[in-house]
Structures are given as structure tokens and as C-alpha cells.
Nucleic acid binder design. Sequence first.
DNA 1: TTGAAAGCGATACCAA
DNA 2: TTGGTATCGCTTTCAA
Lengths: 347, 347
Amino acid sequence: MTDDAVETRRTAPATLHDVAREAGVSLATASRSLNGSTRKVNEEYRQRVLAAAAKLNYSPNLSAQAVARGSTTTVALLVADIADPYFSQMAAGVVREADRERLIVTMAATERDTERELDLVRTLRGQRPRVMILAASRREGDPNNDALEAELRAFESNGGRVAFVSSAAGEFHAVQLDNRAGAEALARELIGLGYRRFAAVTGAEGIRTADERLAGFRAGLEAGGGTLERIVRPAFTRDGGYEGMTQLIEEGLDGIELVFAGNDVMAVGAMSAIRDAGLTPGTDVAVAGFDDIPTVRDVTPPLTTVRIPLEEVGRRALRLALDEPDAVDESPVHTEVVLRESTPRRG
Amino acid sequence: MTDDAVETRRTAPATLHDVAREAGVSLATASRSLNGSTRKVNEEYRQRVLAAAAKLNYSPNLSAQAVARGSTTTVALLVADIADPYFSQMAAGVVREADRERLIVTMAATERDTERELDLVRTLRGQRPRVMILAASRREGDPNNDALEAELRAFESNGGRVAFVSSAAGEFHAVQLDNRAGAEALARELIGLGYRRFAAVTGAEGIRTADERLAGFRAGLEAGGGTLERIVRPAFTRDGGYEGMTQLIEEGLDGIELVFAGNDVMAVGAMSAIRDAGLTPGTDVAVAGFDDIPTVRDVTPPLTTVRIPLEEVGRRALRLALDEPDAVDESPVHTEVVLRESTPRRG
DNA sequence: TTGAAAGCGATACCAA
DNA sequence: TTGGTATCGCTTTCAA
């Protein structure tokens, strides 16, 4: 019984060694033919190696390559919640750009728990990813912040690249979302439409994104003579939006003309709450959101919001981490107020 | 200048070797203390190693572990489109279950291109993932099907596990979605509500999911005396739904009482098209979808659909691949018709 | 150009 | 129990 007899039922994947033997060349030559950078390999040998690889259905072991080369082809992405359109759109951008660079994306969800986030970063560091992208929103004054930062610093000092998607330029590179300016511009536009009396339904205090949007909105109102009469702070999710709005209604809307939701999923939840209370969003009380997720075109009435090009944000986050620091566009992402029927002109 | 002098500014991550030296034990002992399965290590040594690891901020190199152990802790997930809620919900389930098993998920998007899918499978095979989960829908009679199957067979024969999310039990393990039965049940319920004249807006012929839902729906109608008078087959996406519905309206609705969309994102697009045409969904023409993505509770009127527990499907897909074949629940996922206001009782 | 051999960072067998 | 060392699959010097 020869080696060939068992070859078809071998249980382990073909190794480069197998390919080299099959092609009758050395390991080094096989390596150079298949993966080598500057290929200085006799064409005939090269062909033999390629044929052997095809015959054996060879697929290079990325782990082994990583160990030998000292670097991986992996990008790690951390989001709060994969099923949330805000994050899934961004993730789609990251994956698309990674694909262009022939990089592989590993994805994890913090579930909005900063301790989990820290754990995940530690675990993912074991992968030695080329890049770590942190998109879950920051928590102001969180006890885990320092440890997280230390962990990321360590990662960087080992040659890893870090990119945040964030509202502020912190100690790390970040794709900056100008939440404040966006919300302020929105507020001005709403004032321009004739609204004066507002409420806000937004996430818990400390969630940076929520805080900045609220601050911006408030600033815009003050500049224009509007008043922010009520604020509720449920969870930063669709159900949070529903609950927050319900609470507002139960306590009495009391002249509130427009409710600003901290993000679009909350706004969508809020609209359902309004409807379930027997009122009509846009008519009885106007609603505005933030993000411009795809869904908001399809709710009734379509939602006024601040557009963030989420897919592009994801792509930029990866570019930011990959490119030379000076070749990188660090300017804040362009946001844009999109007025729709959920905020009709008043009077 | 001693070794210690540069230690803090070392640029490479600490290795197990470093830890062992720092702790004054052998490589083997360090390995056993940190990652070993059956730890038979002197407690004092163990503590020394742990301390050294902490001091050096050691994080085991997963690639090196993978090559030494001959197996990874990776799960590869293939979806059609990460930003589509159908897939992102499923992905969330996979990631959650993977997290419980301390597995890492790498994610890729086929963008509904079977050739890309094949390429991705080839690339991902290089990772030697423990599991590959294929969730992008199958195409009947696609020229790449055979190559894909061969690739997956090879992966399996190398010890990898494959799990499909699929409508039919094929040659691989699959979490089965009973699209046919679900659509049929939906049709019966709609007949029960008094509807008789239907149209369908669904994906291109050959998309298995679309075909099966359509077939099931048709069967349910026939059993109940309804007629499927028109079928349009745009893209299997939100915009496809919008376009398809627009086409239907332009050609003249002509007595059509209800439009069945092949999935919820299409249904949501269709509802917007109805509204943009000056009609009212649910009133002028009823709409039903399939999947029960979160959004459909928040559109107006809320959408009648067939519920698939998408998160659970994701979790089950991973379990299916991980568990012993006989410990696994291969029964089709439970689907359920959810009647909402988009299909009010007629007459 | 080619091949032998020394790593890469871990695991695990085998003596001691 | 502990430590020495072969090994995993691949890359990359270094001679030839």
C-alpha cells in the first residue's frame, strides 16, 4: 500500500509540505510560488506547484502564516448590538472595505456593557488583529474606561491600530461624528418650521452620543428661542423610545409640539407609542430622530432626522486604521438634516 | 544596559517564553498554568506564572495556539447582506451563542453573488474555522453550486462542521425554515379574513427562499379558493419591493385585494410605494410579508407576516454545527402567522 | 533561482 | 509535577 492509496481519504488538510512533495520541489519554492511576495521562481516550477496545490485542494493555513509572518489579516470590530441597524450598517461598511483589502472581519457585541467590552478587547487582542474598530458608544466616567484605554494602548504599542467611531477626538484615532453640530442644526431647522415647545427622549446620562446630541439640540433651541420642556432618559433602543414616549404621554403632553428622540430607532418606537395612545405622529405631536437608518423612510409619516452616512463611516473607520496617519481624512463626517413629514411646518 | 531596561518599551507582545522567564519556570509549566487543560501544577508556581503574565500583560497568541493545537476557536458566518435585518438578527444570534462557547465569529457578506460566496468559502477555509455557517439563500440551478458543495465537502472531510440556514434539508446539516408551510398557513388565514384576489411581489426565480414561499402561498390560496392573479419578481430587497409594487400599481391593481411580499423588507418597501401612489396600505390594498423583522411593528399599518425567530435560528445554527449529531434538534424552526392591521378583515 | 534550516509562539509527549 | 524538546504549518534568511 503506497502513500497514494490513502491520499483521497486523508483527513487532515493538505499542507504546503504535501504540495511541495507532490510538485517535487522544496518547501521554500512551494511557498514562494504560492504566496511569495517578490516571486523569483522558475515558471515551470511555479506551474508544477500550482497544479499540485489545485490537485490537493490546498488552502494555506492562515494561522500558520500569521505565526510565521508575525502578522495577521484580521480586523476586529466591536459594536454594541449587531441587530441594531445603526451598527449593522456600519458593520456592512467595515466588511466591504475589509474585503477590498482582503482582510477578514471578526465581530463581537458588547451588548452595551462596558465590562463585556473590556473582556472582548482582551480576548480579541489574542487574535493579533491588524486593526481594532470600536464602535460601541462611550460612557462618560465609566469605571472601565481606564482599563480599556490601557488595553488599547498596549495593543497599539504592539503595532496594532485602533480606530474609534466616536463623537469626540480622544486619545485614539476616531471617525468623528459631529453629533452636537448635527443636533444643533436640526433644532434650528425645527425652529424655522415654527416649533417652539420641545421634549426629548434620549438614552441614559453618560452615553456620550446621547449626551452630545441632547446638548447640541438644546443649544440650537436656545439660539432660536425654543424651550426644551421635558427630558426622559429610557434605554437607547427602540423599546426605550416606546417607553419614554409612553411616559411622556401619560404624564401629559401639555403643549409639547415636538419630541426629539436621541436616535432613529428610539424615534420609531416613539411614533408607535404615539399611535398606540390614539394620537397621530406628525399631526398631534411631531417627531424627529437622528441617524437616518433605512427604516425611517418607510414609517408613517416619514421621519425627520439627521443623516449620518453609516456605511461610509464603517469604511472610513477601517481606512483610518489602515492608512498612513497623514494620508487620512480626520475631518468629521458630514451630517445633514433631512426634513420629512414627521415635522410638518407649523401654523 | 540590561534586558530589563528595554522591557517597558518592547514593541512585540509578550510571549509565553517571556512569561516563563519572568516567573522562573519552564515554558511547559507556564503553558500549563495559563491554558492547560488538566492543570497539574504546583499552586505556588501557578501563582508566579499568573503574576508574571499579568505583569507583562500577556495575551496568548491565538494563531500560535491554533497551529500548535491543530484547531481554532473560530466560527465563520456567511450572510448575503449584513445590513439587512433578516441577516443581522440571525448574526446576532450566532454571535451570542458563539460568545457563550468562547468562540470568535468572523463574518463575510456574499452580496447575493454566488461566485463571491464561493470565493469567500475558499478564503475562509484558510482560517480553519471550527464551523462554517452559510445563511445566504440558495440559488436553484446555479452554476457555482457544485463547486461550493465540493468545497464544503472538503472542509468537512478535514474535520470542519458546516451548517446551513435553509429551506430544505440538503446534503449538509441545516436549520430548516419551513417557508412553504409558513406561507401556506398565511394564505389560509388571509382567505379566512375574506381575501380572494391576490398578487405577489417576490424575488427572482431561482432564489430558493422566494420560490418556496411563493409555492406555499399559492398552495394555500388554491386550497381556499383564492386566486393569485399577478406575480412580479424584482430584487429580494426593500427597493425591490418598492419597485415591484410600483409596477403593479402602474399596470393597474384591477381588483387585487392583497399583495404578498416575499419578505418583510420587500413588504415595507411595497407599503411605501402604495402610499407614494396616493393609496393607503391596508385600506386600498392589503399587504402581508414574511420574517417578522422588528421594523414591521412600527410601520403603518403594522404588517401581517409570518414570524421566524431569527435570533434563535442563528443560535441553533451554531448549536447544530457544534453538538453531536444525535443531540441535535433538526426539526424545522417553528413559524407562526402574525395577523396585524395591514390585512384587516374584509367585508 | 533553489533548498536547507532556523525561526514564529504555542502545545504536548516523554523522561526524569 | 516539572522541564526538555519535538512538533504544528508556514516564512524567510543564508549558502550553495
